[in-house]
Computed example of a mutant assay.
Amino acid sequence: MVGCDLFDFQLSKYLLLVDYYSKYIDVVELSSTTTSSITNVMKQIFACHGIPLRIRSDNGPQFSSTRFNKFCQAYGIEHQTSSPHFQSSNGEAEPAIQRVKRLWSKAEDKYLTLLDYRTTPLEGIKLSQAQLLMGGRPRNTLPASTEILKPRIDAIVVKEHFNKKKAKQKVYYDLKRGVKELKPLEQGDSIHMNPLPGSKSWKSGTVVKHYGRPRSYVICSRGRLYRRNRRHLRETSEAANQQDTTTLDDGQLGVSDKQHESRREHRECIRGERRDSTNG
């Protein structure tokens, strides 16, 4: 069950939603108070926390409209209304509004204050609203041990699940696109580099080293260092690298089994890289 209501604060209009179980409060400023604006905000909140089974509201025109009823039907929500002209019967929403107004009246940052309130343990159970809703405590600006912030789930199992899902997606993507794994490059290999934005010319160069990830390389070209992904590089021979590369296309890029480096450029780039690391 989620309670909802509108309220004014410092000349702005807000929509408040409060979860009956956890007492977790969401507050969003509205650009207008039309039913369309309200349902769009609700959709954003539900995309984060899930769709509630029931919504409880007052009988304001925005919530009693045909558009709002259709929204609830589309999302499979049972809409309950409080007794007309009897705000206190709107369950948790009205007390939550008064609570938010009290917090904000003393706050410099409204949303940090709201975060601190959500992450403060509730009296009697030593668990915060956020922990009850999400299973973990979000980080805020207050000092907290890493153990407190850890969610109550098996992080290893979750990580394995997403790793397997990612690997499965890669298999399907590769099959669909006919992707072939490119041969890894080694230090000193001669290459041509994909044209830079705004240019049609391929640059010749040599591989200086891998950069962090298997398919990322540091390339030396004409005394300068570049970082490029493997798919932007084509193997070539040292002889081809000595050509004028301004009009080279894929058909002109020669490939040899054993690549040779352009020694002078390679040494210049290595010296430049060492100077940069020393100065840094």
Results as ranks from 00 to 15, higher is better:
residue 158 V to G: 05
residue 148 I to H: 08
residue 103 L to G: 01
residue 88 S to C: 09
residue 109 D to Y: 09
residue 97 I to D: 00
residue 158 V to Q: 15
residue 76 G to L: 06
residue 141 T to S: 10
residue 76 G to K: 14
residue 88 S to L: 00
residue 70 K to F: 04
residue 63 F to I: 01
residue 160 E to K: 11
residue 76 G to H: 05
residue 60 G to R: 14
residue 162 F to T: 03
residue 153 I to E: 03
residue 143 P to G: 14
residue 107 A to Q: 10
residue 98 Q to C: 14
residue 68 F to P: 03
residue 104 W to Y: 13
residue 50 G to S: 03
residue 159 K to C: 11
residue 131 Q to Y: 00
residue 136 G to W: 12
residue 87 Q to R: 01
residue 122 L to A: 11
residue 155 A to K: 14
residue 158 V to K: 13
residue 100 V to G: 02
residue 85 H to A: 15
residue 104 W to N: 00
residue 87 Q to H: 04
residue 130 A to F: 10
residue 143 P to C: 11
residue 95 P to K: 05
residue 109 D to Q: 01
residue 142 L to A: 11
residue 63 F to W: 13
residue 130 A to G: 07
residue 98 Q to K: 13
residue 102 R to F: 02
residue 52 P to A: 03
residue 163 N to C: 05
residue 53 L to N: 08
residue 139 R to A: 14
residue 69 N to E: 05
residue 162 F to Y: 13
residue 58 D to F: 13
residue 106 K to G: 04
residue 108 E to F: 02
residue 92 E to H: 12
residue 162 F to W: 04
residue 88 S to E: 12
residue 92 E to P: 01
residue 78 E to P: 03
residue 97 I to L: 00
residue 76 G to T: 06
residue 105 S to M: 08
residue 141 T to D: 12
residue 112 L to T: 09
residue 129 Q to F: 12
residue 72 C to H: 06
residue 129 Q to P: 15
residue 103 L to I: 05
residue 62 Q to Y: 14
residue 153 I to A: 07
residue 99 R to C: 00
residue 59 N to A: 09
residue 102 R to P: 01
residue 64 S to I: 12
residue 114 L to C: 01
residue 152 R to N: 14
residue 52 P to E: 03
residue 126 K to H: 11
residue 161 H to A: 01
residue 86 F to Y: 12
residue 108 E to R: 06
residue 77 I to C: 07
residue 148 I to D: 07
residue 137 R to G: 00
residue 59 N to I: 00
residue 70 K to A: 05
residue 153 I to D: 06
residue 90 N to M: 02
residue 127 L to A: 08
residue 124 G to E: 09
residue 134 M to S: 03
residue 118 R to L: 04
residue 70 K to P: 01
residue 51 I to Y: 12
residue 118 R to C: 08
residue 90 N to P: 05
residue 82 S to K: 14
residue 113 T to A: 02
residue 149 L to P: 15
residue 132 L to E: 03
residue 65 S to I: 00
residue 152 R to V: 05
residue 77 I to N: 02
residue 122 L to Q: 06
residue 134 M to A: 14
residue 57 S to H: 15
residue 142 L to T: 12
residue 50 G to I: 10
residue 126 K to G: 04
residue 126 K to L: 03
